[in-house]
């Protein structure tokens, strides 16, 4: 059974790229467009890995990460923050929220896939 990856991303093109990338890598992909959806999807689907954008409507990525990591049932799921927040301190904030890794946009699909394989194998 292939691994399930929850992609939290509000930008359609970027979701499409991840869709294509993960499909090529042999992963199943669950999608969420905001933080609230992400939490719900995580609870419902128990993915093997979450790729989390930060700037999201309703509930932002930091908050969603915090909530997921606060849930004992979900806290073991690795979360890779994939964000265009590249300012100094952004990574720190994400780490504080509980993420396991941090990738800035624009990312190289090839390199991101390698990282996904590292966490979800």
């Amino acid at each position: 059974m292939s691994k399930r990856i929850l992609v939290v991303e509000d930008h359609e093109d970027n979701r499409q790229i991840l869709r294509d990338l993960l499909a090529s890598g042999g992963f199943d992909m669950i999608e969420a467009e905001n933080g609230a959806e992400a939490i719900a999807a995580a609870e419902a689907n128990r993915p093997d890995l979450i790729l989390m954008d930060i700037q999201l409507p309703i509930v932002d990525g930091y908050e969603a990460t915090r909530r997921i990591k606060a849930n004992p049932a979900l806290k073991a799921i690795p979360i890779i923050v994939v964000t265009s927040y590249a300012l100094s301190g952004d990574e720190e904030k994400a780490r504080l929220a509980g993420c396991d890794d941090y990738v800035t946009k624009p990312f190289s699909p090839r390199q991101l896939l390698a990282k996904i394989r590292q966490y979800a194998s």
């Binding site: 970027n14 790229i17 265009s84 946009k105 624009p106 990312f107 699909p109």
Partner: peptide, 11 residues
């Protein structure tokens, strides 16, 4: 800027 650039470079 990064968000669209991400799409361009990604695709």
């Amino acid at each position: 800027l990064r968000t669209p650039l991400n799409a361009i470079l990604g695709y």
